[in-house]
Each structure stands twice: as structure tokens, then as C-alpha cells.
Simulated scan of single mutants.
Amino acid sequence: MRRTSIRDHAWLYPILSLVLAVGILLAFGLTWWHALAVTALLGCPLVVLWGLIFSWSQPEPGSELAPETDGVTIEWIAPFYDRLCTLLGLGRAFRRQILEVAALKAGERVLDAGCGTGVWTRLAAEAVGSSGQVIGFDPGPTMIAIARRNAAREGSRATFELAAVEELPFEDASFDAALLSLVLHHLPAEVKRSGLKEIGRVLRPGGRLIVVDLDQSNSVLSRIVLWPLSHIGSSADTFDGKIPIYLREAGLKPVTVEGQWRKSLTFWRAMKPLSSIASVETPFK
């Protein structure tokens, strides 16, 4: 299959920007009609802005070849990915909550799946200390290049590899914990399933997977702002509440909800059973 790029959905980003603008104006007390009128005036400049971003932000090709994947890659955003996350409210407090849910311990071996520029990977490396190990992987060469550069600059012990979640280059039962933060909504359903099975394969019995992603939202504002994403094929099933189902299908259970972030993102914890027997559901006698 052809490798999917976020540019295939480029038309959605001006729409997402406009919907976000409407949501912000409504939050400040404007009526629907006033919010739509102001947004219409901003529409043309925003469309032009997104066009410039797409044309200017293409990274230089890395020296390593990107792995084959049927998931979406977001290489174009790599140079300003960290700043964008901060602007979207996914900064220190968000990362701190991930660390609290992950409950990492000294000496653990941790996998950061779809690590991007490796911000959380470096924080996790601090949490497990010198006796532990944290590896981040991503299918984007530019993301990995930035992650390695930042880790070297900060003196972090985190390491990074180019890999796709469908085929991980790690041994069976080799990690105590894994993280999937804002990754699954980029992946088609079949890649979600195969990727979660691969992560389950590399987790040790009793190991845990922490998933942070979009979910069914009770917030009207979140529904408005995220509406364009809910109509992208790879994201639609996350808004339908399918992530816990995919986790259980991969043999990771029990699955528990560990909290939410601003009524838009859900934190799940899924465990790998201590034995294969524990993962087999048996009927009641």
C-alpha cells in the first residue's frame, strides 16, 4: 500500500483552524452569528497561512531511510512540533500527568512508541535513572534526527530508533512499560490492531501500556473544535470509543481509564497478563 502522508488531508487544516477560531470566539461570549462573521473575515488569511506552512516547512531528507508504514507521518511539522504542542496546551503539565499515570520506576526498560521529537522520552529517561533504559521510536527520519539532537544537547540517556509500529525491531518481552501518546488517531484501524499486538509482544508479562488519545468527548467546545478530525478515516474510530476494544483484542487487559486532559484526551492503562492462560477468556460453568 502507498505510504499515507498528512498532506493527503491538507484540506482539513484550514477548516480545523476556522472551527477552532469559532470555538474560541464562542468561549469569549460572542453569539454564533458574530463568531461566524469574524471567522469568515479570518478565513482567507488562514487558508493562505496554511498554504505557506505546507510549502515552507518541508524538512531536508534525513540520511536514514524511513521505514515502510501504512500509518500517517507528520514529518512536515517536525521543525516546530514542540512549539505547536505547547500552544495547544500539551506542555509541562500534560507531560507531568503522563508520567504520573505511567508510574515509572528506577531500573525499568520503557518504550515510547511514536515518540516524535522525544520530549516525553527524555523525561522518562530521567524517571528510570541510570539503571533503566528508555527507547523512543518513530517512522519519521526528521523527527528522530531532532530527538537525537535534543537528547545529545541535554545529555539525556534516552535513545531513538527509526521504526514503524507494525514491525518493531525489539525482542519479545523486553520492556516493562510502553507509551502511545497521541499516535493511534493517526493510524488506520488495521494498523492500530497490528501495532498494539506488536507492542503487546515486546511487553513483559505484567507490563503496562499507557495510551493517551482522543476519545468520545462530553465537552461541547471540544466536539466543535475537533469535528474535522472526527471525519478523517484514521481518527473516526477513536471518537467512537474503539481504543479500549482494540487494546483488549490485542490481549492487553484489564483496560482502565486513568484520567482525562481537558475533557478532550483520555488516559488508558492496559496490562499484559502474567501468563497466556490469564489472557484467555473462559465461559462460566
Rank of each mutant, 00 (worst) to 15 (best):
D240C: 08
N218D: 09
G233E: 01
S222D: 03
S217Y: 09
V211E: 06
D240L: 14
D213Q: 04
D213K: 02
L221F: 12
S230H: 06
I243L: 13
A236V: 09
S222K: 14
S230L: 00
D237G: 03
G241S: 05
V211F: 00
P228A: 04
R223M: 09
S230G: 03
S235F: 05
I224N: 02
I243T: 15
D213R: 03
D240V: 02
V225Q: 06
I224W: 09
I243Q: 12
D215P: 09
W227V: 07
T238W: 06
S230E: 01
D240T: 07
G241Y: 05
S217K: 07
H231G: 02
P228E: 08
Q216R: 15
L226T: 13
G233C: 04
G241K: 05
I243Y: 12
P228M: 00
S235D: 13
V220C: 01
V211N: 02
W227I: 13
G241P: 07
N218H: 12
W227H: 04
W227D: 04
L214Y: 01
Q216I: 13
L226C: 11
S234T: 13
I224D: 04
K242R: 15
L214Q: 05
L221E: 15
D240F: 10
D213C: 08
A236W: 13
S219K: 09
L226Y: 08
R223L: 14
I210F: 06
L229Q: 03
L226G: 10
I210K: 00
K242G: 14
S235W: 00
I243N: 14
H231M: 07
I232Q: 03
S217L: 10
S219Y: 06
L214D: 05
S222I: 08
V225F: 02
S235V: 06
W227K: 00
V212N: 10
I224K: 08
Q216G: 07
D240G: 13
D237I: 10
K242N: 15
D237Y: 08
S234H: 12
P228W: 00
S234A: 15
L209E: 03
I243P: 13
G233L: 05
V225L: 04
D213L: 01
P228G: 01
W227Y: 07
K242E: 15
F239H: 06
F239G: 06
K242I: 06
I224L: 14
V220T: 09
V220D: 12
L226D: 07
V220F: 11
L226W: 08
V212K: 11
D215S: 11
I210D: 05
I243M: 12
L229D: 05
D240A: 15
L214A: 06
L214G: 00
L229I: 02
F239E: 07
S217H: 09
Q216F: 09
T238N: 10
V211C: 06
H231C: 00
I210P: 03
V212M: 06
L229V: 08
Q216W: 10
Q216S: 10
Q216T: 13
L221C: 11
K242D: 15
D213W: 07
S230M: 01
R223F: 13
S222G: 12
K242P: 11
G241E: 10
L209T: 10
I243A: 09
L214H: 04
V220G: 14
S217T: 13
V225P: 01
V211K: 05
G241N: 08
P228Q: 07
P228R: 01
L214R: 03
S230A: 08
